[in-house]
Design a protein around this nucleic acid. Structure first.
Length: 581
DNA sequence: GCCGTTTTCGGCCCGACTGTTTTCAGTCG
């Protein structure tokens, strides 16, 4: 996403939140602005291009009024509608509209009765008991607000992996253009693909005499909003992009491997390695591997060398958590982890038949242009998911026909007709058997009843003979919603027993199953599917985030269903021999 | 504010759940 698109999308998003705060008739404006914000985020090109070509109104969700807003933003950098609303809406409270436990009405009460104007004010009022005294704010409500704030805070302290990758690339790109920089990479937890990231770590190979110039670029106002520390080996800044801390470490090219290993971590992994090295009479530091006795340097230029000197296989960054990978590497039993190039198709996505932004044909064109997949499955929502414009049964019949037409035009069965079927309260599916039986791919997901224990519902869905896969199995949204209560071990057992696949959902906020559950599922022999759950063009790139989770779960290509040809997938998830429940 | 092969006006985000009430307002998905 370009910087300009990002700024515009943020303003539109804020406008949406402000209209939500105002409520009443404005609610529909709120929806319109949120939708437009999403659409801007998914644009492949900078908004200026659309303005130049006069195609702004072709962006879904952008009409006459939004076109005007966008023009104004382009020429002045802001939108007068936004500036005016700021005068009547407490802008400092807007970020809380989407926090669990709050909502427009509650915020309005807090603003009007307690005159709070910021999140900090709200926290203070919660602590000193002023909120508890308000009519309608009982202990459970207050407890929910506190929990919501806690989740929200988590996200403030840590970035989502996707956001961290984006921010990291923005720092990395200008460094890489410098001829003084021999090599530069993202290290730390980002390289290990953890689901959330605290600080960014960047490693660069630069000669001592050239470092001043590199520091100058890294600390320039374009990249840094504040410089925290500045030396010859380390520079810390708060990023212009998002105010988070980023550390640049500079080493000599000859030290690259040792430093890259050291700054990638994890801490536990490194401690274990150092202990191992000491036992063997070596010493490891960020500068290399040395003999303990006379401090003779043995290696350090590449990571591979370093691991080799310790008598072990190279360990992929995603595995470096000291969870048994070192023992495996010593036995030369590190699995060949799944890679993005192994993926042959995407098995959850939404078109404009439900809550996606693009038509099925547009999706097919986009995917063919940008990915080398063999198949994709359209999985629109069913009728219970009203918010997601879930489709009635009859519409699925029409959609199945259109899928056929598109495939005919293509001359191949690229597009699979599917559904993301709601699992109802009693575990039954929200789509008739008549239609389920005509679909190529059925993902079953829970979209309601998040507070109850959902194990039974999920197991019943696994036992349904039409269900191929359980979508986002725990329902969590990082920093927004905890996973619903579910006995994962029991779900995994049911998945193995019935031949139902479990999904690793690649949406940045979901990454669900998360790494440790995916690992347990893999060990139990579950077939995993990595999906993007795309709702718009750019979402298709979330596949790499899902692959990151799978690699953290030690998955090989063989563990992942969508690395296989379609006929194998059908074979592995068909339940012909299962007694229909 | 957007949208349209049921509509250029009147839909759209409604039903379930939760928490605080004592009949329902607000939130959630």
């Amino acid at each position: 996403m370009t910087d300009q698109n990002k700024r515009l999308a943020t303003i539109l998003q804020d406008l949406g939140s402000m209209y939500r705060y105002l409520g009443g008739e404005n609610l529909f404006k709120a929806i319109a602005y949120m939708k437009a914000s999403q659409a801007i985020k998914s644009l492949p090109d900078d908004i200026s291009l659309y303005l130049k070509e006069g195609t702004v109104k072709e962006i879904p969700g952008v009409g006459k009024s939004l076109e005007k807003d966008i023009r104004e933003f382009y020429s002045t950098g802001s939108i007068s509608r936004f500036e005016n609303l700021k005068k009547i809406v407490p802008h400092g409270l807007i970020e809380l509209v989407d926090v669990r436990g709050f909502g427009p009405k509650s915020l309005k009460r807090l603003y009007e009765d307690l005159h709070v104007e910021s999140k900090e004010d709200v926290v203070k009022a919660l602590k000193d008991g002023r909120i508890t005294k308000l009519k309608g704010f009982g202990p459970r409500k207050v407890e929910n607000m506190l929990r919501g704030l806690k989740l929200h805070k988590q996200l403030e302290e840590r970035m989502l992996l996707r956001d961290a990758l984006e921010a990291g690339e923005k720092l990395l790109a200008p460094l890489k253009t410098l001829k003084e920089v021999k090599r530069a990479e993202l290290a730390g937890s980002l390289r290990r693909r953890k689901e959330t990231i605290g600080d960014l770590d960047i490693l660069a190979a630069v000669k001592l005499k050239d470092r001043k110039k590199v520091v100058k670029v890294f600390t320039s106002p374009k990249l840094a909003q504040r410089v925290l520390a500045k030396g010859d080996t380390r520079v810390s800044i708060l990023m212009q992009e998002n105010g988070r801390q980023a550390d640049l470490r500079m080493v000599d090219e000859s030290e690259w491997g040792a430093a890259f290993q050291y700054f990638t971590g994890s801490k536990d992994h490194n401690i274990h390695l150092r202990r191992l090295a000491r036992d063997k009479g070596y010493k490891i530091s960020e500068y290399g591997i040395f003999t303990a006795r006379n401090h003779k340097r043995l290696a350090g230029k590449t990571e591979e060398q370093l691991y080799k000197h310790l008598g072990m296989q190279y360990i992929p960054p995603e595995m470096r958590e000291d969870k048994g990978e070192i023992e495996l590497a010593l036995k030369r039993a590190i699995p060949k982890l799944v890679e993005i190039k192994d993926i042959r198709g995407d098995l959850q996505m939404h078109s404009d038949w439900s809550d996606g932004l693009q038509t099925m044909e547009e999706i097919v064109d986009f995917v063919e242009k940008n990915f080398s997949y063999d198949y994709i499955a359209i999985t629109d929502h069913t009728k219970s998911s009203r918010v997601a414009r879930g489709m009635k049964d009859q519409e699925f019949l029409k959609q199945i026909e259109e899928v056929k037409v598109i495939n005919q035009k293509q001359g191949r069965d690229f597009l699979k007709a599917g559904a993301e079927v709601d699992i109802l309260a009693d575990g039954a599916l929200d789509l008739s058997d008549e239609i389920l039986s005509q679909l190529d791919w059925v993902v079953a997901s829970i979209h309601s009843g998040f507070s109850r224990n959902n194990t039974d519902r999920l197991i019943k869905a696994c036992e349904n003979s039409y269900v191929n896969c359980i979508g986002h199995p725990t329902g969590r949204l990082i920093g927004k919603r905890e996973a619903y209560p579910v006995d994962i071990a029991a779900l995994i057992e049911a998945a193995v027993g019935t031949g139902t696949a479990l999904e690793i959902n690649g949406q940045p906020e979901r990454l669900d199953l998360k790494d440790e559950w995916a690992n347990e599922a893999r060990e139990a022999g579950v077939n995993l599917v990595i999906s993007t759950d795309s709702h718009k063009y750019n979402d298709f790139y979330f596949m790499s985030l899902g692959v990151g989770v799978a690699r953290r779960a030690w998955c090989t290509a063989d563990n992942i269903l969508n690395t296989k040809p379609w006929h194998d997938i059908v074979k592995l998830t068909s339940k012909g021999n299962l007694s229909v429940v």
